[in-house]
Simulated assay, not measured.
Amino acid sequence: MRFDIKITSGKEVRRACFSESGLIYFGGASGETGAWQIDMNRLEEYLDTALQEVNCGDSIETFVLGFEIADLAKWGDFFTSMNEYASYRPKMKMVISVVQFNWPEVKDLAPREQFKRLQESLQEAILRIAAMKRKPKNFDVHAFAAAVARALEQFPSRQILVDSQ
C-alpha cells in the first residue's frame, strides 16, 4: 500500500521541516506566531515505508491524505468546501480523504499535541471510506486503519517532531 500526503495551506501557516543544514521554517505571514511542528514530508516517507507490505484488499493501492491547514474562517469556501471530502478513484486504485486543521487552534500547540490531533484526524479520514456512497468493494478499511495506527505508535519522533531533535 502506498501512502501519500498532499498539503494545501494558507499563506499564514508557518511549517517546520528538517533539512541537511538543520531545522528550517517556511511560510507564515510576517508577525505570525506558532508553527506546525510536524515534518509532513518525513511523516509521509515514514508511513509510505511502514505500510509498504500492508495489503487490505486489491481495490486500493494508494491512500492519499489531503492535509489542509489554514485560518478556515478567513479563507472561507476555498478550504471549508473540502471538509470531510473523500473520493474513490477505481481506475487508479486510489482513495483520497481530506483532513482540515484550523490554524488559530493548532499553531501554538506542543508538537506532541499536534501529532495527537493528526493521528485522530487521520483515523477519521480512513474510516470515512466505509461511509462513502461509491466505495471500494474489496478493501478492509478497519484493517488499514489498524495498520496506520500501529505504524504511528512506533513512529520515530526524533525524525518527525521538531521538539524531539
Rank of each mutant, 00 (worst) to 15 (best):
R117Y: 04
E61G: 06
D163V: 06
S87E: 09
I7V: 14
G76N: 10
D77Q: 13
G57P: 12
L72I: 09
I160A: 04
K74Q: 13
W103S: 04
K93P: 04
K133V: 15
G34I: 02
M132G: 14
F139N: 01
T62R: 15
A73V: 14
K107R: 14
V148T: 11
S30V: 03
E44M: 03
L23K: 12
Q52M: 13
L152C: 09
D77F: 10
W75F: 15
C56S: 13
K107V: 02
E12Y: 07
D48H: 11
A149P: 00
L152Y: 08
I129Y: 05
E113C: 02
M82D: 14
M1S: 10
Y25F: 14
N41Y: 09
S19D: 12
L47M: 09
L51W: 03
K91V: 09
Y25A: 09
E105Y: 08
K107W: 05
S87G: 04
A149S: 15
G57I: 11
D163H: 12
V99F: 00
L51M: 07
L65R: 04
Y85Q: 11
R42S: 07
L109H: 00
I5E: 01
A125G: 04
H142Q: 15
G27C: 05
A86C: 14
C56L: 11
N55F: 07
I160W: 02
N102R: 02
N55M: 08
A149W: 11
V106F: 02
A16S: 14
L43E: 01
S87F: 10
Q123P: 00
K135V: 05
Q37V: 01
Y88W: 15
